[in-house]
Design a protein around this nucleic acid. Sequence first.
DNA 1: AAGACGGGGGC
DNA 2: GCCCCAGTCTT
Length: 351
Amino acid sequence: MIVSHLEIKNDHEIRSLSHLLLEWYQQHQRDLPWRQTRDPYAIWISEVVLQQTRIDQGTAYYHRFLKRFPRVADLAAANLDDVLEVWQGLGYYSRARNLHKAAQILVAEFGGQCPERYSDWILLPGVGSYTAAAVASIAFGEPRAVVDGNVQRLLSRLWDWEDEVGSKASVHFYQTTAQALLSGHEPGMFNQALMEFGSQWCKPGIPLCDACVLRAHCRSAERGTQRDRPVKRRTKAVPTEIWAYAIVCDPSGQMWVRKRPEHGIWGGLYEFVPRALYESSTDRETHRISISHRLTHKILQLELSIFVLPDARGWVGAPGLICLPQSDWSVRAFPRPLSAALPQIQGRMSS
DNA sequence: AAGACGGGGGC
DNA sequence: GCCCCAGTCTT
């Protein structure tokens, strides 16, 4: 007979674990901005900002986003370019596009109100099982367990779970185990306790096992397998691509740019003129800037060739290109490595 | 099940 | 240089 993994720890131990966790949380929880509100919109924004993003990096964006778009209706009514401008530099720009679209859906189909239930949240673009569970539990008390990277790490160690993250069995294990632990507790608080503990104590690499209140319940600590949990697929080699751009500009600060397509890398952001669109030119490049930029799945070797013309508008560009005065640079969202190069480009334009 | 999708920080 | 981060969507 197959024994459920939950039976490896009995009901009593499950209750003991969750109780210890909540006690730990009362002592160690951090004072984070989104813990000061019950506004589902603000909590939703915080969850999306924090997807695959460290709290230290995301916090400023959370404040900036809410200040610029305080309510659902403000976000829905905004231009996508303005939303992306606020999101600039944070990465995973589909999050901003999906937030914008979701806000418009809420206005059109939910009367401009945030839904309460997981089953409604999960319907929105950019809201997956984690975010739907987080908002429904934290803002509305729905007993729906969250499973994020912190929770996976913690649970994989407590049970010394050896299946690869992402496998069907693992998805089921993490979800049902977190849900069992949640049972009988205040959902929003418990979910945050679970994540906080994973983040602050059950860390990647070397966790704080010597001072861990759950140590007596941890199969991984018992076996010494902490470093190998959770089990992840081996990372593949990251290929390099060369992206060549022409900076077609003039001393007054005008510069040709174009908006990238909505889908794919840096979707909806602005970039310079692809070198291929300018290669018919007989102009000589005046400067060259090389930038290596590492993404998760590829390394971009950016080659920026600067062409300073007497008057940039004198060039007949290609379809889709626009000539931007310098005063408009800051209101267009550029990918990080390109925006970082702007000051250097500006320096070369006038010299 | 695997890959695309950013950028930054820790060691 | 490698890992990971309050993940989601597409193929």
